[in-house]
Amino acid sequence: MTSGSGAEVGAGAWPPLREELRGIEPYGAPQLDVPYALNVNENPYAPPAACVADIAESVARAAETLNRYPDREFVELRAALAAYLSRDVAPGQAPVAPEQVWAANGSNEVMLQLLQAFGGPGRTALSFAPTYSMYPEYARDTHTAWVAGRRAEDFTLDLDAARAAVGEHRPSVVLLPSPNNPTGTALSPEAVDVLCGAVGDDGVVVVDEAYGEFRRAGTPSALELLPVHRNLVVTRTMSKAFAGAGLRLGYLAAHPAIADAIRVVRLPYHLSATTQAVALAALRHADALLGQVDALRGERDTLVDWLRAQGHDVADSDANFVLFGRFADRHAVWQGLLERGVLIRETGPEGWLRVSVGTPEEMAAFRDALTIVTKENQ
Rank of each mutant, 00 (worst) to 15 (best):
S5V: 12
E8M: 14
G10M: 06
P16V: 10
R18A: 13
I24L: 14
Y27N: 02
Y27F: 08
A29H: 06
P35Q: 07
P35N: 10
E42G: 04
A53P: 09
D54A: 15
D54M: 03
A56F: 01
S58E: 07
V59K: 07
A62W: 09
E64L: 12
N67F: 12
P70E: 04
L77H: 12
A79I: 10
A79M: 11
S86A: 06
S86W: 09
V89W: 05
N105Y: 02
S107E: 14
M111Q: 10
M111C: 05
Q113K: 01
L114C: 04
F118H: 11
G119V: 01
T124M: 01
Y132C: 12
Y132F: 13
S133V: 15
M134G: 04
E137F: 09
H143C: 01
W146V: 02
G149M: 06
E153M: 08
F155N: 08
D160C: 04
A162F: 05
A162K: 05
A164Y: 10
R170E: 11
N180I: 07
N180V: 07
N181W: 08
N181A: 09
T185V: 15
T185L: 14
A198V: 00
V199F: 00
D208S: 03
D208T: 03
E209R: 02
A222S: 06
L226F: 01
H229C: 07
R230Q: 00
T235G: 04
M238V: 11
K240H: 12
A241V: 05
F242Y: 15
Y251W: 12
L252C: 01
A253V: 07
A254W: 01
A254F: 00
A257E: 10
R263Q: 06
R266V: 14
R266D: 01
L267N: 09
S272R: 04
A273T: 04
T275A: 04
A279V: 03
L280W: 04
A282G: 06
R284I: 08
L290G: 08
L290H: 15
Q292T: 15
A295T: 11
R297G: 03
R297I: 14
R297A: 13
L303E: 14
D305K: 15
L307T: 11
L307E: 14
R308S: 14
D313Q: 08
S317D: 02
L323F: 10
R326T: 11
D329A: 13
Q335H: 15
G336H: 13
G336V: 06
R340N: 03
R340P: 07
G348C: 09
E350M: 03
L353N: 03
R354T: 15
R354Q: 08
G358N: 06
A364R: 13
F366N: 08
L370V: 08
V373T: 09
V373K: 07
K375D: 11
